[in-house]
Design a protein around this nucleic acid. Structure first.
Length: 573
RNA sequence: UGGCCCUUCGUCCAACGGCAGGACAGCGGACUUUGGAUCCGUUAAUGGUGGUUCGAAUCCACCAGGGCCAACCA
C-alpha cells in the first residue's frame, strides 16, 4: 500500500536566481550571505510518525528540501517521535516512501527518540540551575493553575521545591518509581506570562508505555516544546520552518535553546499552512476518516494524503508545481481546488498517452458496415501539440460502444454529438450519421443506428465537409471489460472545518466522492500495461490503473482528474 | 476581558516610499480529428478613518474583520 508506483522523478529544478523570492527564501538568502550562523544552511522536515503525510506536508517538504538545495545547504528528515502512545513504525515507513516519491532525498535521518538521554541531561541541568522543577499536582490542578488567556496563572505549591528534592524526584521519575501522572517536570518561567506557553510549560511527563523504537527503555517522555527546538539545535539546524500556529511556541523555543547554552541556535520562522477546498488537512481528522471506515484507508484515492494522491494518479511533479504556484506567505490561505487540478492536468497533459474508454456504454451499430469486417486503425498516442510520438492499433468493427451521454434523441441547439440525422466523427475512425435507434419496452434507448461514409477513414472527409463533434468509442467485439472509479471531492462543502456549531465534519462528506462504473469498456491496447499505468481517456479525464486492485483479468482504473468540461458549463445554462 | 499574528482582483502570490503585476478561476474570440490543449483579448483588488510625506498598498495611530494560544498532542 505504501509502495511507490514507480521510481520517483527527483526534483531537479535548477535554482533560479532571477525567480521572485518568497519571504522565507529572502530570509535564508540574507542569513546565508551574512553567515550569521557560522555554518551552512540546514533545514529539517520533522513529521511525527502518527499518521500519513498529506498535501499540506508536501508544501512543507518542498519548502524545507527546496530551500536547502537552493542555498547549497542540507535538509534532515527527523521523526518527531516523542509520544509513545500514538506512533508507529508503519508510519515511519510510509513517510519515508512519500518523501522519496515526492522526489527528495534527505541528508540525515534522525529521530527525536534518539535524543531522550541528551534531553534528560538538559532537564537535570535546568533543575540544577533552578530553571525547572518537579510538579506533583494532578493534571487537572495543573490545568487550572495555568489560568486563562485573560487571567494570570497561580504558582503550583511545588514550585518552590529545593533543587536537591527536584533532582531526586526527577531521577526517580526516570527510574520508573512513579505511576503515570504522578509528577511532571516543568520549566520555571512565569505563571503570569501573557504568553500561555511560558506559564511554566511541561517538559517531561511519565508514560509507562512502550515506544515503537525505544521499547521500554524510557518511562519519561519529552513534550513537543522541550524536544523540538533542542533537537534542531543538536542537529545544527539553522532555519526551523514551521506553520503559523507555532508562533507562540517560538518564545519558549528560544528560551530553551538559550538555557541549554547553544551559541548560535536555530531560528524558527513560521509560514501559513496549506488549506485546500473540499478536504480536510488535519491528521486527527484524516485518522478518523480511516478508523471509522469513511474511506478505504490512508491511501484511499479520495484522501489528500500523499499516498492517496499517488494512488489517485497524481504525479510528484504536479505536486511540486502546485507547491511552487501557491507560494508561501504569513497569511492564512485557502486554495481553490481548481488551482490544484490545473497543476495536475498541466503535468499529465504533457506526459500521458491517450486511449479510448467508455464509462456508460451504449451500442452503436453501423448498419452499412460489413458484418464480419474488422479494420485496424493506427491511432496516435499523443495529440499534435504534445511533443511525443507513438501510436497504437485500434480495432474498428460494425458494432461499437459509445458513451451514453454522447447521444441524445432530442438534443438542445449547442449539442454537437450524436442525434438523429446528425453526423459526427468517430475519433480516428469514420464519419457516421445517425439513422435511428432501438428502444426497449420501457422506452429506454438500447441501441443507436448509424451509417458510415467509407470515404472518411481516419476521420477526414475528402470533400472537405466539417462535423462539429468528435466522439470516442471502442469496438464491441474487442473491448476489454473494466471498472472505472470516478473520484470526486471528498467533501460536499468547501470548508468542512467550518462547522455549524455542534456539527461533525463527517456529516459534510460528499456521498458521491466515489462513483463506480462496473460495466465500462476500454480499448484493447492497454491489456498488457502494468498496474500504475497512466492514461488520458479521451474526452473524459486522466486515469491510472489502480496500483492495488487492478488485475489483467479485472482491470480497474482510477480517475485522477476529469478533463475541463466546457460543455458542462454550456449545459448548465 | 490578555498576548501574538494576519488583511492587495472570486482564490493564491507579487509590488520592500515612486505607473498595483502574475497565476488559477471567470468572460469573449481564434484554432482544433479530445466541447482537451494552445493562442489572443478581457473583467476584477489595496478593509475603514485619520496622520506623516512632494508622493502611501508600503510608515504611524485608531477602528473593523479574521486567525492562533488556556492537551501530561505535535
Amino acid at each position: 500500500m505504501t509502495h511507490a508506483d514507480r521510481p520517483s522523478a527527483p526534483d531537479t529544478t535548477p535554482p533560479d536566481a532571477t525567480a521572485r523570492k518568497d519571504f522565507l527564501r529572502e530570509k535564508v538568502a540574507e542569513d546565508a550571505l551574512s553567515g550569521r550562523f557560522g555554518r551552512p544552511i540546514h533545514t529539517r522536515f520533522p513529521p511525527e510518525p502518527n499518521g500519513f503525510l498529506h498535501i499540506g506536508h508536501a508544501k512543507s517538504i518542498c519548502l524545507n528540501f527546496g530551500i536547502a538545495r537552493e542555498s547549497g545547504g542540507r535538509c534532515n528528515l527527523r521523526f518527531d517521535d516523542t509520544n509513545p502512545t500514538t506512533e508507529d513504525l508503519r508510519y515511519v515507513d510510509a513517510i519515508r516512501d512519500d518523501v522519496r516519491w515526492l522526489g527528495f532525498a534527505w541528508d540525515e535521518e534522525r529521530f527525536a527518540s534518539d535524543y531522550f538521554e541528551r534531553l534528560y541531561q538538559i532537564a537535570e541541568t535546568l533543575v540544577g540551575a533552578g530553571k525547572a522543577y518537579v510538579d506533583s499536582q494532578s493534571e487537572e490542578a495543573i490545568r487550572e493553575g495555568r489560568g486563562t488567556v485573560t487571567v494570570a496563572g497561580m504558582p503550583s505549591r511545588f514550585r518552590g521545591r529545593a533543587v536537591e528534592e527536584n533532582l531526586d524526584l526527577l531521577r526517580r521519575m526516570r527510574a520508573g518509581e512513579f505511576p503515570d501522572g504522578a509528577h511532571v517536570l516543568r520549566a520555571r518561567i512565569d505563571m503570569a506570562h501573557p504568553n500561555m506557553l511560558m506559564r511554566d510549560p511541561l517538559l517531561l511527563r511519565i508514560r509507562h508505555a512502550a515506544h515503537y523504537r525505544r521499547g521500554t527503555a524510557w518511562c519519561v517522555y519529552p513534550l513537543y516544546d522541550f524536544a523540538h527546538g533542542l533537537s534542531d539545535a543538536f542537529e545544527g539546524i539553522t532555519h526551523s520552518l514551521c506553520t503559523l500556529e507555532f508562533k507562540d511556541n517560538r518564545e519558549l523555543y528560544d528560551w530553551l535553546v538559550r538555557e541549554a547554552g547553544f551559541d548560535r541556535p536555530p531560528e524558527q520562522t513560521e509560514f501559513a499552512r496549506l488549506e485546500l477546498d473540499y478536504t480536510v488537512l488535519s491528521k486527527r481528522k484524516l485518522l478518523r476518516l480511516v478508523s471509522e471506515g469513511h474511506v478505504a484507508g490512508w491511501d484511499d484515492p479520495r484522501m489528500p494524503t500523499i499516498a492517496g494522491l499517488r494512488r489517485r494518479g497524481v504525479t510528484p511533479e504536479a505536486i511540486r508545481a502546485f507547491a511552487d504556484r501557491i507560494g508561501v506567505a504569513r497569511s492564512d490561505a485557502r486554495i481553490e481546488l481548481a488551482t490544484f487540478e490545473h497543476a495536475v492536468r498541466d503535468d499529465l497533459n504533457m506526459q500521458v498517452p491517450r486511449v479510448m474508454a467508455v464509462a456508460r456504454p451504449l451500442k452503436l451499430v453501423i448498419t452499412n458496415y460489413p458484418e464480419t469486417q474488422v479494420e485496424t486503425l493506427d491511432a496516435p498516442l499523443y495529440p499534435h501539440d504534445v511533443p511525443k510520438t507513438g501510436s497504437r492499433p485500434v480495432p474498428f468493427s460494425r458494432e461499437l460502444w459509445i458513451e451514453r451521454d454522447d447521444f441524445m434523441e432530442d438534443p438542445p441547439k449547442k449539442f454537437f454529438r450524436l442525434a438523429p440525422g446528425r453526423e459526427v466523427r468517430l475519433r480516428y475512425g469514420y464519419l457516421v450519421t445517425c439513422t435511428g435507434m432501438v428502444k426497449d419496452a420501457a422506452g429506454e434507448i438500447v441501441e443507436v443506428h448509424a451509417a458510415y461514409d467509407p470515404a472518411t477513414r481516419g476521420g477526414d472527409a475528402p470533400d472537405g465537409r466539417r462535423v462539429q463533434g468528435t466522439i470516442h468509442w471502442v469496438s464491441a467485439g474487442h473491448a476489454l471489460d473494466c471498472e472505472l472509479r470516478l473520484y470526486d471531492r471528498l467533501f460536499a462543502v468547501p470548508d468542512p472545518d467550518a462547522l455549524p456549531e455542534g456539527g461533525d465534519f463527517v456529516a459534510a462528506l460528499n456521498p458521491d466522492s466515489l462513483v463506480t462504473m462496473r460495466a465500462a469498456k476500454v480499448e484493447p491496447s492497454v491489456a498488457e500495461d502494468p498496474p500504475g499505468s497512466r492514461y488520458q481517456f479521451e474526452r473524459a479525464g486522466y486515469f491510472i490503473s489502480d496500483p492495488v486492485d487492478s488485475r489483467k483479468s479485472a482491470l480497474v482504473f482510477n480517475r485522477t482528474v476529469a478533463l475541463r468540461d466546457s460543455w458542462a458549463k454550456v449545459k448548465a445554462r
